[in-house]
């Protein structure tokens, strides 16, 4: 009887979303275990911070100060560029979003199934985390939330074999889909025609299609392109930019919730979304995301 119950559970979990709430509630039961496992990591972090020498701290402060200075200098230009970009887009009658609401979360040092690329973060539904939410680190897109529990959530990395992310080549806007390969430093782009203009070193950014990942975040760089005349598609491999197995701090993004960074611009541009984009590439939007519904596609604007 229990066997059949398990089978029913599995089928329901796999096919329908109805078990999501059950799973979230039950995950409260295992949360203490995650916390206990977390303790050694927290303790070493704390020791590391409190036992650091004055000299080391000073060096760190110095380097951070230099870094902040440099970045602030770049930001001056960024504000001007942003304003210009929005003005130009206004002329083209299309909207573009810069700056989403973000929240810093920390990875919990919990190992999950080694054959699935998943991580646990220490923010949950109480912090308004929801399933399907994008997750980035300082260098690029990491993945998306798959289960949001009350206090902690599970995220799937972009390299998981069941993950797909809609991307475009930054250089020329070529749109395609990057699939996870199951190897932590490798993404595959199987749907690129042999004749397409793509070369090693190209930066891939999120295209915003599929409505799940906001547009413009760096995802990966193309590492190898192989043209086989016998195949319809070129085999293209890319390396994720995010430090998928090293980052400890991650950013949760709420697409559509703009921060005050946008208030720099006097007149925010409204509506008419990325109509041109969705029409241009229906086949991409269709397969965009294993977990998203196609209906999500045009909901990226607030």
């Amino acid at each position: 009887m229990l066997v059949s119950l398990s089978v029913v559970l599995m089928v329901m979990d796999h096919r329908f979303k109805s078990l999501e709430s059950v799973r979230n509630t039950l995950s409260l039961l295992v949360y203490p275990i995650q916390l206990i496992v977390e303790i050694p990591g927290t303790v070493t972090d704390w020791l590391d911070e409190s036992l650091a020498t004055r000299r080391k701290l000073q060096e760190e402060v110095d380097s951070l100060r230099t870094q902040q200075f440099m970045q602030q200098a770049q930001m001056q230009k960024f504000a001007a560029l942003q304003a210009e970009n929005i003005r130009l887009r206004e002329l083209l009658d299309s909207s573009f979003e810069i700056g989403e609401k973000v929240l810093i979360a920390e990875l919990m040092s919990v190992n999950l199934d080694p054959y699935k690329h998943q991580v646990v973060i220490n923010k949950g539904e109480l912090h308004n985390v929801y399933a399907g939410q994008p997750l980035v680190d300082a260098d690029g897109v990491m993945g998306q939330i798959v289960h949001a529990g009350p206090y902690s959530s599970t995220a799937m990395l972009i390299t998981d074999t069941s993950h797909a992310i809609p991307v475009q080549v930054n250089r020329n806007g070529l749109r395609t889909i990057a699939l996870g390969s199951g190897t932590i430093n490798r993404l595959e782009l199987p749907y690129i025609p042999n004749s397409a203009d793509i070369q090693p070193g190209d930066l891939l950014i999120t295209s915003g299609l599929g409505g799940r990942f906001p547009q413009g975040y760096p995802v990966a760089t193309v590492s190898a392109v192989q043209h086989d005349p016998g195949n319809a598609f070129a085999s293209v491999v890319a390396t994720p930019l995010a430090h998928l197995n090293r980052s400890r701090e991650v950013l949760l993004i709420w697409p559509g919730h703009t921060t005050d960074i946008n208030s720099v611009v006097s007149a925010p541009v409204e509506a008419s979304a990325e109509k041109a984009d969705t029409e241009a590439a229906p086949e991409n939007g269709e397969a965009a995301d294993n977990h998203s519904t196609a209906a999500d596609t045009a909901t990226a604007t607030p």
Binding site: S6, L9, V120
Partner: peptide
């Protein structure tokens, strides 16, 4: 519990441990 903890399909470990 294992399923919840390791993020596998709900019921997978339940079945095999049963």
């Amino acid at each position: 519990m294992v399923d919840l903890l390791t993020g596998t399909l709900l019921g997978q470990h339940a079945l095999s441990l049963t």
